[in-house]
């Protein structure tokens, strides 16, 4: 066992779903997922096809706030637009893994990226789901992650169904021409899995040191609790080293785990560092 932070354990759990049997697409700003895909690409899934911003076959990149697109494009194997990418990957059954990090999820697997309150008269209007309704329905492995596990996020019923993978049973999906595969929810406490509309989410593994009661008490929907529940795998020293030294040296993956003010402070600090480094590099280049 190595010394690790909870977000690093979650990154490693997500990374374990990525392999070279399909295409993994970087969605909207989800630093934890980005780190996981890079980790997979640097370890067990070197041949995995990654897509970022329609750069097809992108290389692994260092995570930061301002330079990721340039890095993604600098080593990619093809430049497409959304038309061919979404027709081929999203709708064409090549989508392997994508992570979604919505505001709410409920026991049916429905998730909400639209609003808190009534859709037509919302208390808080959120950004909207981008391509997540299609991703959720059409990809093989759906991972929903949260920086916190509580009843405000894992709710009894979402305020709006931006998307919901339906049906979930493998046979019904195959009959409809869809890829089969479960939904997994990955949180600081546990991994939950659902592959049957008639059954609740099941606790698949508990994160190290977490008691099953804590998971049940902090979940707003019914859970199936098997008699024997395994423990989520801990990161290896090699994974931790890659994450901290190469993939995410500025710890952008903490973002999802912070409150609004801490996020702002973190962004300011990260941006100051990126400004200083870029300016120093530009002066070296001028001097050279």
């Amino acid at each position: 066992m190595s010394d690790y932070r909870i977000e690093e354990l979650m990154v490693c759990r997500i990374a374990s779903e990525v392999d070279d049997s399909g295409v993994t697409v970087l969605g909207s700003f989800t630093p934890l997922a980005y780190a996981a895909y890079m980790l997979a690409k640097l370890t067990h899934a070197q041949d995995a096809y990654l897509v970022g911003f329609n750069a097809i076959g992108m290389p692994a990149v260092e995570l930061n706030l301002t330079g990721v697109e340039a890095a993604i494009y600098s080593g990619a194997l093809a430049y497409w637009s959304f038309g061919p990418t979404t027709q081929t990957v999203h709708l064409g059954k090549r989508g392997l893994v994508e992570c979604v990090s919505p505001a709410q999820i409920d026991g049916s697997g429905a998730f909400n990226l639209a609003c808190i309150g009534d859709y037509n008269n919302p208390k808080v209007r959120m950004p909207g789901g981008a391509g997540s309704p299609e991703v959720m329905q059409h990809y093989e492995r759906i991972l929903v992650y949260f920086g916190r596990h509580d009843k405000r996020t894992l709710v009894d019923k979402v305020d709006f169904r931006t998307g919901q993978r339906y049906p979930l049973e493998a046979s019904a999906r195959l009959e409809r021409g869809l890829l089969a595969g479960a939904i997994r929810v990955i949180t600081p406490l546990a991994v939950l899995v659902k592959d049957d509309d008639a059954k609740p989410f099941r606790i698949e593994t508990l994160n190290p040191g977490v008691d099953v009661t804590e998971v049940i008490e902090n979940t707003g929907f019914e859970l199936e609790v098997p008699t024997n529940i395994g423990t989520t795998a801990e990161p290896t020293p090699e994974q931790i080293k890659l994450l901290r030294d190469r993939i995410d040296p500025y710890a952008t993956i903490k973002f999802d785990f912070l409150d609004a003010q801490s996020r702002k402070d973190m962004l300011r600090d990260l941006l100051q560092g990126e400004w200083d480094r870029a300016l120093a590099t530009s002066r070296e280049n001028v001097g050279a």
Partner: peptide, 10 residues
């Protein structure tokens, strides 16, 4: 421009 021209790939 430096950010765009100095991609950090791994």
């Amino acid at each position: 421009t430096t950010i765009a021209r100095n991609p950090k790939t791994l």
